[in-house]
């Protein structure tokens, strides 16, 4: 059974026109449709990667799953039960079992907390254990992420390097014993030479502790390295999903193809094909009902702007793209 299911999950942000427009001209509000009818199933022990450019809705999806933002439509189900109307003990349990790792290790740690206090914050806030046990678990957790507690517990975040801080961020999530971890670009602020170490830590922790994960990144090479399955998003819609290596090696959707084709290769001897798309990314303000990539797609025709294909994400081995023109594209 799946651990997490998103069913037609949507998040719209209302943009109210100015006072004069609203009152005199009776202009209605417009809506930024940051996430639109997103279906997603995450299996036990699976790391699901979400790729996409800024504004594609990947971070909005994360904050909704982490319970920091309420969806405006659709449902989030955790182990089969909807989490949207959870209260009391059930909500506490969900808060504990679904944990988030943040992008910016310089911003996400409270500057006036010591490292031990940062890691102890979750268990203390939810009163998971008594003080001594929290301390013990915090120390053990710090050791596990490669920060010996006798050396790091009493320090402040500003005394640590970026990599060490991101380890603290990981420790503070994992000390809660989560079953589901949401990692929002945890490497993007770190130097290249230490990224691999944090990535290894994440993968080691996942194989030891068997949590499921959603790993969000704009870096497809990293996602290919960490994720079991990969979903590509564009302006709030899912474009393609499938086993990660499969999606990167044989992308189906025109957008995925462009995205992968645009990634520079660290080898001066290789030449890449030029991505065949036009225009710039826009904001999803009152978008038409169809595929949002259609205006930039070289293969699009009038029908693309009218209907959008929702993906069936339950089967972890299925590689599918939300495109009606796949036959045409593959033939041409």
């Amino acid at each position: 059974m799946a651990i997490l299911e998103l069913e037609r999950l949507s998040r719209h942000f209302e943009v109210r026109p100015g006072f004069v427009d609203r009152v005199v001209r009776r202009k209605p509000s417009s809506y930024i449709k940051a996430v639109e009818a997103l279906n997603l199933t995450v299996g036990h022990n699976e790391i699901l990667g979400i790729a996409g450019e800024s504004g594609c809705g990947k971070s909005t999806t994360c904050t909704m799953v982490a319970g920091l933002l309420a969806p405006t439509g659709g449902d989030i189900r955790y182990k089969g039960d909807s989490v949207l109307d959870l209260k009391g003990a059930g909500l506490m349990e969900y808060r504990r079992r679904v944990q988030m790792i943040f992008q910016d290790p310089y911003e996400s740690l409270n500057p006036r907390f010591r490292i031990s206090e940062i890691v102890a914050e979750g268990p203390t806030a939810l009163s998971l254990w008594d003080g001594d046990e929290i301390d013990e678990r915090v120390n053990a957790m710090l050791n596990a992420v490669g920060l010996p507690h006798h050396k790091y517990a009493d320090r402040y975040p500003h005394e640590l390097s970026g990599g060490e801080r991101q380890r603290v961020g990981i420790a503070s999530a994992l000390v809660m014993e989560p079953e589901m971890v949401i990692a929002d670009e945890p490497l993007s602020m770190l130097d290249v030479s230490i990224r691999a170490g944090i990535l290894d830590l994440f993968k080691d922790m996942q194989s030891q502790r068997h949590f499921s994960a959603i790993y969000v990144s704009h870096d497809l090479s990293i996602l290919g390295n960490v994720a079991d399955r990969l979903m590509v998003m564009y302006l709030g819609q899912a474009m393609e999903i499938g086993p990660a290596l499969e999606v990167i090696r044989n992308p189906k959707h025109p957008y995925t193809r462009a995205l992968i084709g645009a990634v520079p290769v660290p080898d001066p001897r290789t030449r890449r094909a030029i991505p065949n798309i036009r225009g710039d990314i826009s904001k999803p303000i009152d978008p038409p009902p169809g595929c949002r990539f259609a205006p930039r797609c070289p293969h699009a025709d009038a029908s693309c702007g009218e209907r959008f294909m929702e993906l069936d994400t339950a089967d972890p081995h299925l590689h599918q793209a939300a495109c009606h023109k796949l036959d045409v594209i593959n033939d041409g």
Binding site: T63, A66, G67, L68, M92, R95, R96, Q99, M100, F102, Q103, D104, E107, S108, L109, N110, P111, E121, G122, A125, L126, G169, S172, A173, M176
Partner: peptide, 16 residues
């Protein structure tokens, strides 16, 4: 700031 979002994600109440 992000550390407040992090505290929320870890389950801290408004009071806390």
């Amino acid at each position: 700031r992000q550390f407040i979002a992090m505290a929320k994600a870890r389950g801290a109440s408004d009071f806390r």
